[in-house]
Design a protein around this nucleic acid. Structure first.
Lengths: 255, 255
DNA sequence: CGGTAGGTTGACAATGGTCAAGCTCGGTGG
DNA sequence: CCACCGAGCTTGACCATTGTCAACCTACCG
């Protein structure tokens, strides 16, 4: 595979954030004084600028190891969590045992908002790599400054969900995967990482579950995209070779 | 936009709510003093009990006729809307023209929350029958009492979206339609109407769009359910004959 | 009473799922 | 250091579900 072998850094220590884009990381963005990941301080995003630092300092951290769950569906709602570093998936289950990944989450995103309305979480949320979250106790939902920000976060989440419904309801398999890759790319770049090369933290099965496809279909599509020169895939390493080509796949009839 | 004693307030006069379930309506639930639809006063749901009446009186009503849109994607966010009576659909569009129904809304539900995060709406929302909404100007988002309630409403909306993703991603066609019918039934009964007999306000095409199916598949499934004695379908009138049978369809492998 | 939007049904095709076999890589223990 | 093991991935063959196209029907509205 024509793929610059990345140095396989495996950090289980706290100090630096785990590498997200296999070494190709732009550290240009300024950092929050309290958080050390580039450009994306969850607490900074959550509160007005003037109180960001205070909030950040007051925030309790929690570590979640890979495969561990942060909360489970049905557990009583006690806090929100802002991801400081790491990667999560959320899944919901049907009574008959089937379940589905409904979201992947990365640094700066807020987890647990599904619990506000019913006082208990409705999804399972699990770390896909060793991660750290800031605990936002439910009592702080009364903080007007936090509230204002949280409205926006929840609203944007509603918009994100619209996109997923569109994806699941109107797109063919290739469109879905291309959309997914472009979305990941966009989110990585917003965090100061490479937009073209990154490491998938989820399995084919999890991608398939999220996209409403079988793991085999996901695998075949990766192979096909690879063959078409759109991406370079080696296991979980992805390099987007032709971003415009991928965007074209996103449009119907190029599936 | 000021909401104090506007000239165009349509006060809560005595006109009864439009019949939702072709005459089979239970009127047993108590009504809000300010709103006249049974058991489900949007303003009452939105504010703490002690201020419900005041808010309801201050609320400006807007009428939306069938096929008219309440707001369109891209329009700047100026208010939320609580449905007082009627029925709406929300659709989102892809660049290439395809679009999809992402929700149906009925009395008591809140529209426009997708606009909070980005300051403009992201969906088109259209009345499927002559409807009335209470306007909640964006300025009122600062009202702490309203805020608290809105958090719950938005959170529940997130949970609802999870259910739709599950439906679109994990269910077969028959499961989807059965789930949809049971959901409608549940929502009607919560509003004091019959749980078994109701009038569909949307076309087969709109149902199909919402469920990620073609209109032909929806039609065939209605015929099949009819043949199996699960429902009695006559155009847009639906009577659920065997609710447990429908629930069984909801489970995999009974598709 | 005719036009039109919406709905039904059938024949066929295509997309994507299922099943099965085999591969790759990383971890583990001899 | 090597052999083995298992989770995750790939690929092929086949098949089921659902979409597409087309024809026709029906109800409703002027």
């Amino acid at each position: 595979m024509a793929f610059a072998a990345p140095s396989r850094i495996r950090r289980h220590t706290t100090d630096p954030p785990p590498d997200v884009a296999s070494g190709i990381i732009s550290r240009s963005m300024k950092r929050c004084a309290a958080c050390d990941h580039p450009g994306f301080c969850p607490t900074g995003k959550l509160v007005a600028p003037e109180t960001a630092l205070a909030s950040a300092l007051a925030c309790t951290l929690k570590r979640v190891r890979r495969t561990e769950s942060l909360y489970r569906a049905g557990a009583s709602f006690d806090s929100l969590y802002a991801i400081r570093s790491g990667f999560f998936k959320s899944t919901v289950a049907l009574e008959d045992g089937r379940d589905q990944v409904i979201a992947f989450h990365m640094a700066g995103e807020v987890l647990g908002m599904d619990g506000i309305g019913t006082d208990s979480y409705t999804a399972d949320t699990t770390a896909l790599e060793d991660s750290e979250v800031c605990i936002i106790p439910r009592a702080r939902l009364n903080d007007p400054v936090l509230q204002r920000e949280l409205f926006k976060v929840m609203s944007r989440e509603l918009v994100r969900d619209q996109g997923v419904m569109l994806l699941l309801g109107s797109m063919g398999s290739a469109e879905r995967l291309a959309t997914f890759l472009l979305n990941l790319s966009q989110r990585f770049v917003a965090r100061g990482y490479s937009s073209q090369e990154f490491h998938l933290r989820m399995t084919r099965e999890e991608i398939g579950s999220y996209l409403g496809l079988s793991l085999e279909t996901v695998s075949r599509l990766f192979s096909r995209f690879h063959g078409e020169g759109l991406v370079c895939v080696a296991q979980k390493h992805i390099r987007i070779q032709d971003i415009d080509g991928l965007r074209a796949v996103t449009t119907a009839a190029n599936g």
